[in-house]
């Protein structure tokens, strides 16, 4: 579902989670795999809306900056997404919130992310800390 939207999606992901800029090809495959799997069980209408949103976010900056989102520098990307996040329209805020959630799911759902942030929960509980 992300195939043809990859550059836009990755640019959005790197703005939401700047650490994503350090992902290698395998890392991106992992992130996108998690997102794809999460979407697979969702209604087709939701998947369509999401594709539409990613496309709109990629092209909307043309109106403000004369460039696509993925061609913007990080500061402008950030500024643009802040505008979207704080949109007076609930529909737009909701859409962005959904996309942000998916990106966070893809990034922080990777087992490797736990180690990166120092999350260490273990089934053995206290015993694992001794």
């Amino acid at each position: 579902m992300l195939e043809d939207l990859r550059p836009g999606f990755r640019a959005l992901a790197q703005t939401v989670v700047p650490d994503a800029s350090r992902l290698d090809a395998a890392g991106w495959t992992e992130v996108e795999g998690i997102v794809e799997r999460a979407l697979a069980s969702r209604p087709p209408a939701l998947r369509r809306q999401l594709r539409l949103l990613i496309r709109a976010l990629e092209w909307l900056p043309f109106l403000y900056y004369g460039k696509r989102f993925s061609a913007l520098d990080p500061v402008r990307r950030n500024r643009f997404l802040l505008r979207i996040q704080d949109s007076p329209l609930r529909l737009v805020r909701r859409g962005f919130w959904g996309l942000r959630t998916l990106i966070l799911l893809g990034y922080y759902g990777r087992p490797g992310a736990a180690a990166e942030i120092g999350y260490r929960a273990d089934s053995r509980g206290w015993e694992a800390r001794r």
Binding site: T15, V16, V17, P18, D19, N78, L81, Q85, R100, T101, L104, L105, Y107, Y108, G109, A113, A114, E116, I117, G118, Y119, R120, A121
Partner: peptide, 25 residues
Amino acid sequence: YFPFTTAKALSGFGADHSAIMHAFP
């Protein structure tokens, strides 16, 4: 909570969001 649940619960995105996630311990 767990990494994704925590990330989702925080508002915003970008560097500030990541900084809190890296402060997990």
